[in-house]
Design a protein around this nucleic acid. Sequence first.
DNA 1: CGTTTCAGGTGAAACGGTCACGAACGCTTC
DNA 2: GAAGCGTTCGTGACCGTTTCACCTGAAACG
Lengths: 168, 168
Amino acid sequence: MASPASRRDAATRASDRPGDASPFALGLLLRRAHWRAAGVMSEALRPLGIELRHFAVLIVLVDRGPTVQRDLAAATGTDKAGIMRVVDDLERRNLAVRKAVPGDRRARSVEITPEGLALFDAAHVAAEPLAERLTADLGPDGSEQLTRLLTLLAHPGDQEPAPPTHSG
Amino acid sequence: MASPASRRDAATRASDRPGDASPFALGLLLRRAHWRAAGVMSEALRPLGIELRHFAVLIVLVDRGPTVQRDLAAATGTDKAGIMRVVDDLERRNLAVRKAVPGDRRARSVEITPEGLALFDAAHVAAEPLAERLTADLGPDGSEQLTRLLTLLAHPGDQEPAPPTHSG
DNA sequence: CGTTTCAGGTGAAACGGTCACGAACGCTTC
DNA sequence: GAAGCGTTCGTGACCGTTTCACCTGAAACG
């Protein structure tokens, strides 16, 4: 009956524009910001011939050394099948290799190759100016602040290691 | 030759963990944060029977009133075809309707229905406690700071149309 | 030694995105 | 004032990507 927009005031509703306090505003903002950052990273990676998902795997390989695909999937958040495709592409380009695990014959350890490392470094060199342009609007302090807040949001309770939920 | 990891120090390489200063760190952090926020919002929206993309369209409809699909696509960042799919789902669920534009017979104005408005409000009620848990780690000031920085990052040059940087 | 669990790999189906087509409007022109 | 042409909007189809479910082989455990 009457006006269809009489339940709440329009100012308290969700919006992707600045000045919104709705619970969905943060997620929408995150979506747009991630979209922009992903675009920048993709541009940086395009000349190298790889994509974001490949680079994400390379990051884990560099950071954690040889890793089995199961841990790779857990670290990148993608599915096992997706990880297999990415590792397959990486092997085809000689950026990474699958090595047999001594103790476990079923597991396959993925290791980065010198070529993969070189490409990894080249990606950094290519991405640095783009990243600076991205964070130019935030200022030097804003960038660090954003990184800190994002870390808190992305890694909740990092100082609280996951309790042994072996019951699940 | 030599060690495969001798080009850079591991601490300067990209990583999705805290304490990284690589140009990819921000994007990775954004990815994880968005993943978490999207999961929370999806959980809030799941009982309502809609998804994030549907809700994003509803937000624009509430915020800007009747809108043509082209503006809807521009506002949500998705493609026109995707908007069509979303509007089609919304019409099927009677959450929105397509109305003919008086002046333009080719354009189709999408308008939210009272049912869509009710679902919109219900989504907010369901999402508020979840959003509070999300931002609980950041603190009240951190949430606002994050929103501000994210707004700068997601809406570049909203007040700065075109900085006169060198052509290149 | 058999059963259960786990890791990897494969295939199919669904989802999302991109590209190309038809229709309509406005502008221009005759 | 009507027709042609360029542009824009909406729609449909195609392709790539992601996700799900099953299968094989191996290790841990009873």
